[in-house]
Design a binder for these strands. Structure first.
Lengths: 129, 129
DNA sequence: CAGCAACTGACAACCGTTGTCAAAACCAGG
DNA sequence: CCTGGTTTTGACAACGGTTGTCAGTTGCTG
C-alpha cells in the first residue's frame, strides 16, 4: 500500500536541516538555507519532503498571517502548542491540559463533535525585545 | 490622518451581506453571493472592503487549512474565539477567560512580551453530523 | 453646482504552492 | 558488480488567492 520512502540525499538533507534549525521555517527559507550550505535541493523537492514529514506527524505546520505555511521539527509527537517569537521565529513547545479540557467541553455544550483546535501564541522573546 | 471612508453602494452591500450571513465566508464567496443578489460588486472591491472591515476590527479573519482567508461579522468587538463547523461554516462565538490568563502566564514565564494568541475550535455541528 | 479627492473594477502582476514529465538515482535480484 | 524497474528529482508551467494599476466614475464639500 504505502511503499517505504527511499533514503536519498535530498530527503536526508531536508530532515537534517529541520533538526538543526530552531523555530518555524517556510519551505522557501529551507530551500534557500540548503542552497547556501551547498547541499542544493530543488524547491519542488523541498515542498514534497516537508509535506511528507508533516503528513507523518514528524513536523508541525503553522500558517503565518499572510497564509504562508511554516514548518518545525517537534520534540514530542504528542499534541502540543507553540509560543513563537514574531521577530526571530524561535519557538517553545507548550502544553495546556486546561485548554484541551475547556475546548472539548465548550464544543460538547454546543453539540459539536469531532472536535479539533488550533492554538498558537505569538510574542516577542527576551532577546528580540 | 485617516479620512473617513465614503458610504458607497458597494461598501454598504458588503457590510450588509456580512451582517446577514452567518458563518465564515471567503472574499470570493461574498463576491459570488452579491452577484447572485444582483448587487454586483467587483471582486477587487470586495477584497478591499473586507480588509478594511478587518482592519477596523469589525469582522474577524480566519485562515482555512489551505490558506484561504475567511471573514465573519462578529457580535462583540471584544476579543473572543470561535467554534466553527467544518461542514457548513456555521460558527459560535466563545469566550475563555481561563485561556487568556493561561497564555499570558505561560508567555511571561518564557520571557515573551507583546503577547497575542490565536485559538479556533473546529468540529461538526449537530445538524451536519 | 463645480471640482477634487476617494472609490471602483477590469485587468495584469504576484507569490506560494502544486502538477508535469523526462532525466537521474536508488535498490533489488541476478 | 551489473542491470532493470521503480521511485525520486527538479526545471518548468500552471494554478488560485490576493494585491497592484490606472483610467473612468462617484461622493462630498465648498
Amino acid at each position: 500500500m504505502s511503499p517505504a520512502p527511499r533514503t536519498t540525499r535530498q530527503r536526508t538533507a531536508v530532515a537534517d536541516l529541520l533538526s538543526r534549525v530552531d523555530g518555524f521555517r517556510s519551505a522557501q527559507e529551507l530551500h534557500e538555507l540548503l542552497r547556501r550550505e551547498g547541499a542544493s535541493v530543488g524547491l519542488t523537492t523541498v515542498y514534497r519532503h516537508v509535506q511528507a514529514l508533516a503528513d507523518a506527524g514528524e513536523v508541525d505546520v503553522l500558517r503565518h498571517e499572510d497564509g504562508e505555511a511554516v514548518y518545525r521539527r517537534c520534540a514530542s509527537p504528542a499534541h502540543h502548542h507553540h509560543l513563537v517569537c514574531r521577530a526571530c521565529g524561535r519557538s517553545v513547545e507548550i502544553e495546556g491540559p486546561a485548554v484541551e479540557r475547556w475546548t472539548s467541553q465548550v464544543a460538547a455544550e454546543h453539540g459539536f463533535t469531532d472536535v479539533q483546535h488550533t492554538l498558537e501564541v505569538f510574542g516577542t522573546c527576551a532577546d528580540c525585545a
